[in-house]
Design a protein around this nucleic acid. Structure first.
Lengths: 131, 131, 131, 131
DNA sequence: GTGGTCTAGACCACC
DNA sequence: GTGGTCTAGACCACG
């Protein structure tokens, strides 16, 4: 599992960790039942304060995405995959609506917005295929 | 000019003011040369501390969107309209790209994204027409 | 006598007036004994608040550059020409020293400073000749 | 890093701080990546209100001269050195031009200005060598 | 009346 | 511990 922290990009570090773990689950890199790295381990690896990792893991526990296996560590919860996937999609829909609303309110024509959308989608699909 | 502050929506108050003034300029409610509400006036009207208004106005000055006429007040700068319009559109494009990228990365098919986009656009256009 | 006020250029309006009157005296446009425009007159002409003119004239009186002729108005004081000339030159010397000091402290070589100086002087002399 | 505040020299305190930090970066006392004094620390040290320090630091952030590492502090941004150096030199050139222009307009001969310049430069270079 | 600066002190999120 | 935001209230220069 690869997590990359970007200091000072606005997003709190614990949020970056939460998101990337959810993402790893959504795309199947982490599957239910699998152990995730211990607090100490991840703290060392990312050169991030242990408290910050704890905070991230707590958020994930509160959302029932991971759970503790006493004495063994933290594992991905059953049902986490479905949860993460649907969460992400709901989020995407909400943001899409916001962006469109802002665009319209700033005086962009629906036609222009559609053009933006299509161009962006095409170029992103292309870029993702390569990587 | 109507400014509405929403407490605790995440955005700092001064940012909400900055955005709404930029928006008012972009849509032509405020035009270059026009005096904007005085610090004390807006402070009273929004029930917000004067320093917060000052902060917002200073940000706008740093971006050359307003300028001071010493002892008289603050006016919309020449060129502010163009500035605000283009800023807003650039912002919309950037966010659109982000949303699409997130969508693709969360496993949504381009086709699904397009459906989301079209539905959202249609319903927003309908809603805006009414209001 | 021509006075030009630039709103919002940082310098207070009364200062701009004081300077330009001193300048007019230094270059001989205004000579000792000559009446200067009345407060009301100048206020109308420059579209500037009368209080501001009063303030400027007070500063000039405090420096003995103008004086009141009871019942007649304000006149340029005897000796004002010499005063204005020397004031300006002292000021220029002081600022020259400051600029050089800053330049040296910012890591510019004396040689570079000399080059800046010569180029600037040449171009300004050229520009002034034309006008 | 030494910062010296001079009360009431016309320049606002936050401006004095901004300038001196830029200067420290330009001369290499502060290098990119280095933590600058915390708000509270500098506030104590200079006996200046914390808000005033915050204001100064925000101005520096807006110019991309420093950036925040959330929860850890503020560091000099990469590229800040080049930025500060060039800013300072541009400033020096502008002021040099202004001074010369004023001198010419006050009736000083180019020859006299050159004499002023050379004398001032020589004496400053001498003084700086000693210190 | 206007904006600009400063202080004092509070509360927040983050690490 | 860090910075970020906000409030309250003061004083200043300017018009």
């Amino acid at each position: 599992m690869y997590i990359r922290i970007e200091a000072s990009n606005g997003l709190p570090i614990y949020e970056q960790i939460v998101r990337q773990i959810k993402f790893a689950i959504a795309e199947g890199t982490l599957v239910p039942g699998q152990l995730i790295p211990s607090v100490r381990e991840l703290s060392r690896e990312l050169a991030v304060n242990a408290n910050t990792i704890v905070r991230a893991y707590q958020d994930l526990q509160n959302e029932s995405i991971i759970e503790t296996l006493r004495g063994r560590g933290l594992v991905v919860a059953p049902g986490a995959t479905r949860l993460c996937l649907s969460q992400r999609q709901i989020l995407v829909r909400e943001r899409m609506e916001q962006v469109i609303l802002e665009g319209i309110r700033s005086g962009l024509e629906p036609q222009q917005l559609t053009t933006y959308f299509e161009k962006a989608l095409a170029s992103i699909v292309r870029a993702e295929k390569k990587s």
